[in-house]
């Protein structure tokens, strides 16, 4: 047990580090959150911000769903403006088989016929005959959520140190390593999974919640953002290549939005982005503990979904020595 007295350094101010630092600070632990960048360059910056534990239960390990459900409460409690109005999943008639399978492999949904789809998202009226509504889900805007978490961290007495690389291995006191891909050399089985997104802007379509479109290979979402913007994402490629977005991926992403609503065809492309998701072989997150060094990593495409619950687990371990054997590993 580390206890509440010793100052803890959290390295990496992405979603995992930001939540960990905040919950430690709120538990009365003196905490400093460090990042080599300015907090805008990492994987979290490019995230979709989906809080969709039920939708993710089609392929993710059960632990991801458990952490995700717990995290929904933590998001609501700490950032009350977080929209929790569910997510909608629709498919083109030809992908109806995929929708059936998706319905079978997930829970927490209700069928949505054409009328219900229109009621939930008037912009999609008449466009989709059937879908699934997942009422107990939400989404956050990552680029607003991270600064909001940092502001709360300062309020809770924590400090932030940006623009300076800190090596967790050389830290003198207790440290929580939340560097994501930055920790690849320290974790043998960590790999990068490339995700590509496109940010577009149009005033012609309005959505009030993320809409997922059945796609034969990737979970594709169109997520409404402030300022008439929509994030389309994301691909999932077994590659740690950060060289940019391929034309094929960009076409597939934009086609997804266009087939959701043709007015997206007139939207303006604001940004095309690539990020590497840190993942372990089971694509589930892990908390590794070695003495007073703790590493939180492998959040894969579930960073915003599971980070709060992971932070809670790390905090309970630091303050009271509580062990969660489902996510913690010892060395």
């Amino acid at each position: 047990m580390i206890g509440r007295g010793a100052p803890v350094t959290v390295v990496g101010a992405g979603i995992a580090g930001s939540w960990t630092a905040l919950l430690l600070a709120e538990a009365g632990v003196p905490v400093e959150l460090c990042d080599r960048g300015d907090g805008t360059g990492g994987t979290s910056h490019w995230a979709g911000g989906m809080l969709a534990p039920d939708c993710e239960s089609d392929g993710a390990e059960p632990i991801v769903v458990r952490l995700g459900r717990r995290s929904l409460d933590l998001w609501s409690r700490h950032l009350p403006p977080t929209p929790m109005n569910g997510s909608l999943v629709v498919s083109h008639p030809r992908d109806g088989g995929d929708l059936d399978r998706f319905a079978r492999q997930t829970g927490g949904h209700e069928p949505a016929d054409a009328e219900r789809v229109a009621e939930l998202e008037p912009a999609l009226a008449g466009r989709f005959g059937r879908g699934l509504f997942f009422p107990r889900e939400g989404h956050v805007e990552p680029r607003a959520a991270l600064p909001a978490l940092h502001a709360k961290l300062r309020e809770a007495g924590g400090t932030l140190r940006f623009g300076e690389a800190v090596d967790p291995a050389s830290a003198s006191g207790p440290v929580v390593d939340c560097r994501g891909m930055g920790a690849r050399d320290a974790m043998a089985d960590l790999r990068g999974v490339k995700g590509e997104t496109v940010l577009i802007e149009t005033g012609e379509v309005a959505l009030s919640r993320p809409v997922r479109l059945m796609h034969p290979r990737w979970p594709l979402y169109v997520i409404p953002r402030a300022g008439n913007r929509f994030l389309i994402g994301a691909t999932s490629l077994e590659s740690d290549d950060l060289s940019g977005v391929s034309v094929r991926s960009a076409l597939e992403l934009m086609t997804a939005a266009y087939t959701l609503h043709p007015a997206f065809g007139e939207a303006r492309i604001v940004e095309i982005g690539t990020a590497l998701r840190p993942a372990f072989p089971d694509n589930a997150p892990r908390v590794e503990v070695a003495g007073t060094r703790i590493a939180v990593n492998g959040l894969f495409r579930h960073g915003f979904l599971v980070a709060p619950a992971l932070a809670e687990i790390v905090t309970a371990f630091v303050t009271d020595g509580v062990r969660d054997n489902e996510v913690m590993r010892w060395s």
Binding site: R191, K194, L237, S239, S246
Partner: peptide
């Protein structure tokens, strides 16, 4: 199709 091409998929190939 699944990987980015070339050596970028090394981690996956190793698995």
């Amino acid at each position: 199709r699944e990987a980015g091409g070339g050596r970028a998929g090394d981690a996956f190939w190793r698995i």
